[in-house]
Design a protein around this nucleic acid. Structure first.
Length: 433
RNA sequence: GGGGGGAUUCCGGAGCGGUCAAACGGGGCAGACUGUAAAUCUGUUGGCACAGCCUUCGGAGGUUCGAAUCCUCCUCCCCCCA
């Protein structure tokens, strides 16, 4: 299966220039995607482009990721209704380093590999350009007429009749030209004949192919992926807390795993095709199995496993699974007791912690004083009382039903913690010291 | 400037002298169901020493055995007329 067939059945193909498939039959053809260094981590919205590169490499071609050090200083007007904040050079440098480490999880950069991946920063070639040189050597070849015909520009022009249009600065207007020049540069230096990206990038990419045609009489190609949608119409890749990042500091492996596990049935197959490298047969089998027993949620589990292992590694994945089992009520007191301190902390990361003097527990204390007086686990003792009455309070995974039962030493997990659960999934931890 | 209406527990909104910690709806919390979903159903939703007591109905006083409910003043909101 060649690259195009691969992305096609995976539903990753939105638009493609005629002739693209043929050019890939040539040797040593490279393709690139651009990545904006707006943060010091990729988020899962970037993943489609990254997966395009991964498939590209697996098909034997050379993938190139271009960090937009220069373009990031300008801001792509595509899809934005307002002028963007500019990033400083230092920020971009920092972000680039972090992103590079993440890309290494998807792409093979090793020197001995014939089609090793490349990571470039367009700042390296753009920064040498003087303004005059650029507008003379590059700008000369593209007309403003051509540039303003692009949707991304049109949407921002007041003349479009859109009342919300805020206009765009010359800086942002120039964006497509700068990105187009990137393509030209890569075409010349790295035999890069294809640029890929999200469907919103089509306009920018074609400016590049146009530039290559006019300046070098060369032929370059474009391929875009559809924007990822969710069947419920909500935006993909966001939770109440915001973006899902690849950086474990920003989104813990547990949250990351949970994000994928929570995929709806309607989306799971689609995501499995896009975000994993499982082949057609494997996915079809999973879909079949899932249909026979929907409640076991095979698709979601596999999806979460594949991606979490790829991004965070097997160990982090195992911890996330354990954490999920414990946090979603299937855990037991015994399971809690077997956790080592590190895993315990991982599992209960992000859960409110309260510290209490150990003597207090050793002496024994009633549940009301412990959770509503000396710690603010609950708002009031009445709330605790109600919760017990409603069978909604658990201590160390065991239902706490008798309000008169004192909390003491025997409730300490590993001689240190008490795990308090309200309802099904709201946790608090009391730590003794 | 004149006239009228209103301010209630997280929100909306009843209550108009005792039976009011205050109807009802929403939201929240919990339980059942379930796939860590949606829907549904049930309970609960001021505090505490919880079959009892304490503090709440814009604020301050007053009438009364007793006030969210009546009176006075104050603050803020809305409507109508000029």
């Amino acid at each position: 299966m060649n690259f195009i067939e691969e992305v096609k059945w995976r539903g990753m193909l939105h638009n493609i220039m005629p002739g693209t498939e043929e050019i890939l039959k040539e040797k040593n053809v490279a393709a690139y995607v651009g990545i904006d260094p707006t943060a010091d981590s990729l988020h899962i919205g970037h993943l489609v482009s990254v997966m395009l590169l991964k498939h590209f490499q697996r098909a034997g071609h050379r993938p190139v990721a271009v960090i937009g050090g220069a373009t990031g200083m300008i801001g792509d007007p595509s899809g934005k209704s307002e002028e963007r904040n500019l990033l400083t050079l230092d920020t971009i440098k920092h972000n680039q380093e972090a992103i590079k480490k993440q890309l290494e999880k998807f792409l093979d950069f090793s020197e001995d590999k014939e089609n090793k991946a490349l990571l470039l920063n367009n700042y390296d070639w753009m920064s040498k350009f003087s303004f005059l040189d650029f507008i003379r050597d590059v700008g000369k070849h593209i007309t403003v007429n051509y540039m303003i015909a692009k949707d991304s520009v049109k949407k921002r022009m007041n003349a479009s009749g859109d009342k919300d249009a805020e206009g765009l600065s010359f800086t942002e207007f120039s964006y497509q030209l700068v990105q187009g020049y990137d393509f030209l540069h890569l075409y010349k230096e790295h035999n890069c004949k294809l640029q890929m990206g999200g469907s919103d990038q089509w306009g920018n990419i074609t400016t590049g192919t146009e530039l290559i045609r006019r300046m070098l009489q060369g032929k370059a190609y474009a391929l875009t992926s559809p924007l990822i949608t969710k069947s419920d119409g909500k935006k993909f890749g966001k939770t109440e807390k915001g973006n899902i990042w690849l950086d474990p500091e920003k989104t813990s492996p547990y949250e990351f795993y949970q994000f994928w596990i929570n995929t709806g049935d309607d989306d799971a197959e689609k995501y499995l095709k896009i975000f994993t490298i499982l082949n057609k047969d494997e996915i079809e089998n999973l879909v079949k199995e899932h249909k026979e027993a929907p409640h076991t949620r095979i698709l979601q589990k596999k999806l979460a496993e594949e991606i979490t292992v790829m991004v965070h590694g097997k160990t982090a994945y195992d911890t996330a699974v354990t954490a999920s089992q414990i946090l979603f009520g299937k855990g037991t007191k015994e399971q809690l007791e077997t956790l080592d301190e590190k895993t315990f902390n991982d599992v209960f990361e992000g859960v409110p912690h309260f510290t209490v003097k150990k003597e207090i527990i050793e002496k024994g204390i009633n549940i009301f004083d412990l959770t509503a007086e000396i710690t603010p686990v609950f708002k009031s003792k009445g709330e605790v009382r109600r919760l017990i009455k409603d069978k909604g309070l658990s201590i160390n995974m065991e239902k706490f039903l008798n309000p008169d039962e004192p909390i003491n030493k025997k409730h300490l997990i590993n001689d240190k913690y008490i795990v308090i659960r309200q309802g099904k999934k709201k946790y608090s931890i009391i730590i003794t010291e």
